[in-house]
Write a protein that binds this DNA or RNA. Structure first.
Lengths: 222, 222
DNA sequence: CTCATATTCCAAGGACCTTTAGAATATGAG
DNA sequence: CTCATATTCTAAAGGTCCTTGGAATATGAG
C-alpha cells in the first residue's frame, strides 16, 4: 500500500528525459563536441566515430529534450547547444561525476595519464596569474578552433606542430597548455612533451570549456 | 574517418553512468524521497508504489554510482543520499529540466495545478520576509517529517488536519505553505484550500528541499 | 535450535533503446 | 530537367535495462 498521496508519475517521467539524454556515451560525446562549436551532422559523426544515420538519430533525441538546436544551411544541417545553460549544466554533470565516480577518474587517468601530475591550474588562477606575472599560455587545439575563440593572449600551437616549435618557447617561463575540455587528450600530451624538453609546464584544469563557464573572456580572432 | 585523435570512449561511458542513474522515473522518485530523509527499503517501495525487490534493485544501482549510501540496523537497511552534493545536484537537474522541458511544466500543471497561480515565494524572499513582517509559515507535511526538520518558526499543519484547523489561522496575515519539494502535491492543495476560505496564501517555491539547498536554516525539534 | 521478517541474489520474460540498412526528402550544381 | 550530396525517415535486428518470481542470506524473537 502506498502512502496517503500518490506521487505524480508523469512529472518524474518528464524529469527522466534529461537523464536519458545523458545516459549514452555517444550523446555525451556529441554534446561535448557541440560545446566547442557548431558542427554539421557529418562532422559530428566523424568526430564521434559513429555512422551519420546514427548521429542524426542521436541529435534528434537531443533536440527533443531541447539540449541542442539545428540550423539548415544549404544542404547541411548545423547543430549547436541550445544555449549557455546547457553548457553550464554539462559542466556541472562532469564535475559531479568526477567527484563521485572513482572509475571515471581512473578511466581519465588511463586515457590521459595522471592529471594531478600535470599540476593543473584552475581557470581563476590562470586568469589572475596572467595579469600578474609572465605566463605563456598555449592553445594546442587546431588553428581553426583557435580562431573561433581562444583565451586572450594565448598562442596557437596545434598539437601536431608543437614539437617543431618547441624552440620558440622560452625556457625560463612557466607554460600553461589547454585544449577544449576536461577529457581532451591534447593538453596532457603537450605538457608531457614540454616537460621532457625541460620546460616548466602545466595544464589548464577543465580546458577552455571550464574557462568559458567561469565567465572568463574569450577572443574571437576570425 | 575520425579526426586525428581518438576520443576517450571509456571516459564517456563512465560519465553516462550518472545519466543512466537519472534515466528512470522510479529512481528519480526514490532519490526525491531520500532527499527528505533516510528510509528503509520497505518504506521506499511503498512510497514509490513499486515492489520491494524492485526497490532493492534500483537502490543497488544508485549505490553503484555513489548517489546513495545504506546502513544496516537489525534486519532493516536504511538508505540515504550519499552526501549534500547529491541533494544539490538533484536540485540542479530539476531546475534545469524545468527550464527546458515545456512538457515537464505542463505535467506539473496537470498534477499540481498551475503553480504560477499560487504566487510562489522564493526561499530567499520568504527568509527576509520572515524577519521583516509577520508571515505565518505552515508546514503541511506529516508531523513526523516536521519533527525531523522544518523551517524555524513554521507551524506544523499536516494536510489532513488543515481543514479542521483553518480557524486557528489569522485572516489578516499572509500565509505561506510548504511541503518537501517542487513536485509535492500537499502545498498547492493547501494554498487552494486556504484561498477558498478567504486567506491570503501562497506557496514556497521548491519546498523545503530548495530552502535547504539555499543554505537556509532548518530546525530539528526531535 | 526454529521461525518470521527484511533484504538481496539470481534468472528470465518483456519492454525499451541503439544502431543500421534501405528508402525518402531537400538542396544545390550543371 | 537530372544528378549528387546531406540529412532524415522507417523498419527491423540486436542489445540493454526493468521488473518480478523463486531461492538465498541475515538478523532477531522465542
Amino acid at each position: 500500500m502506498a502512502e496517503e498521496f500518490p506521487f505524480p508519475e508523469p512529472v518524474y517521467a518528464q524529469l527522466a528525459r534529461i537523464g536519458k539524454a545523458l545516459a549514452s556515451p555517444v550523446r555525451l560525446r556529441l554534446l561535448d563536441l557541440l560545446d566547442q562549436r557548431e558542427r554539421s551532422v557529418e562532422e559530428l559523426a566523424a568526430a564521434a566515430g559513429i555512422g551519420v544515420k546514427n548521429a542524426s538519430a542521436q541529435l534528434n533525441q537531443l533536440r527533443a529534450t531541447n539540449l541542442v538546436r539545428s540550423r539548415k544551411e544549404g544542404t547541411r544541417v548545423y547543430y549547436r547547444l541550445a544555449d549557455e545553460a546547457v553548457a553550464r549544466f554539462l559542466g556541472t554533470v562532469q564535475d559531479f561525476a568526477g567527484d563521485r565516480l572513482a572509475d571515471l577518474r581512473s578511466a581519465v587517468a588511463e586515457e590521459l595519464g595522471d592529471l594531478a601530475a600535470l599540476e593543473p591550474v584552475t581557470a581563476e588562477d590562470l586568469s589572475t596569474r596572467m595579469t600578474e606575472s609572465q605566463v605563456v599560455v598555449i592553445d594546442v587545439r587546431s588553428a581553426d578552433d583557435y580562431e573561433r575563440g581562444h583565451i586572450p593572449g594565448a598562442l596557437s600551437m596545434p598539437q601536431a606542430q608543437l614539437r617543431d616549435r618547441l624552440s620558440t618557447l622560452p625556457d625560463d617561463q612557466e607554460i600553461v597548455a589547454y585544449c577544449q575540455g576536461p577529457y581532451c587528450v591534447a593538453s596532457p600530451r603537450a605538457v608531457k612533451l614540454l616537460r621532457e624538453h625541460g620546460h616548466q609546464a602545466s595544464s589548464l584544469a577543465g580546458g577552455l570549456a571550464r574557462w568559458r563557464r567561469r565567465g572568463l573572456p574569450v577572443t574571437e580572432s576570425a
